[in-house]
Write a protein that binds this DNA or RNA. Sequence first.
DNA 1: TATTGTTATACTCTATAACTATA
DNA 2: TATAGTTATAGAGTATAACAATA
Lengths: 164, 164
Amino acid sequence: MTTRAQLKANKANPDNLDINTTVSDLENLVGYNMKRAYVVIHKDFREALGENGISPPTFSALSLVVTYPQISQSNLARMLGIERSGLVSIIDGLEQQDYLARVHSPSDRRVQALVPTAEGVKAYHAMLATVQAHEDKLLAGLSSSEKSTLVKLLIKIRAAESQA
Amino acid sequence: MTTRAQLKANKANPDNLDINTTVSDLENLVGYNMKRAYVVIHKDFREALGENGISPPTFSALSLVVTYPQISQSNLARMLGIERSGLVSIIDGLEQQDYLARVHSPSDRRVQALVPTAEGVKAYHAMLATVQAHEDKLLAGLSSSEKSTLVKLLIKIRAAESQA
DNA sequence: TATTGTTATACTCTATAACTATA
DNA sequence: TATAGTTATAGAGTATAACAATA
């Protein structure tokens, strides 16, 4: 017997490879599965914020600036786990959209303190709600306990870096 | 009282931001945490295979070619979730290293069947063992039950794509 | 000497569009 | 008309190295 789903799979898959069950050793590697899952979540994020929406790195930067007004670019880069140089164009973009301002610190004139604008704070909270809602919808198949387990494990992996 | 760990944290973090506890709304977003965790795993993968080691996409392609000899490039791209065009240079690299050969299919002369060489199979199994060992070490803080839960959840997320 | 922000530069990964040769 | 492989091209995202201003 051949189900409709199998017929559909075979049409997209003329070599009759069993793409819906075990594929190879890859399925047991955490890295491979994480990459594949991240691609799905990344796509969902971009769809959530639409055509001219900000990118995940830009969103993350804005989030931290809203949470920690006056943060310096160096510290922001450190918290995001990226290089200072990479942050420049991200902050440029947020500044151009009037979501934040670079303010020279009086105590250390090398530092540009990042200060969110009222518009930036407002836009951020709207975007956060949108992103959160999309993510919740995408992950509707996971119980809330599964979701918190997942986040807990992901944070544990991030923490494992420094130790190794 | 100030612990040694706190002193160290403060040195790297002059603004006294509490980078070790709750950072912001980001900590609750699955996407953000997955990206951060993937960066750690990706770095570990590159370290595992060393200076001139193959990239994760190339490794994944080789894995599927070894598992499914005679697979076509189109089907391989489909299984990897990437475009056909992006696969060309990946296969070029594997062919140059004599890990596989492109063989014209007699039944359909458009198709290049991908056939692993003996050397390719051998190299693949060695790399798989190395990658697996590094990943196990990196994830030593997770129990084997946590690891399988994680993989299960990641696969569930990948499967959620088509439905949304 | 060291750090902050910046620029220049390059590399990886990925996508879209168009081409060719086959079917 | 449609598909397989390919090329050309472009756009994110990220890194390294070097620089000026400041500490």
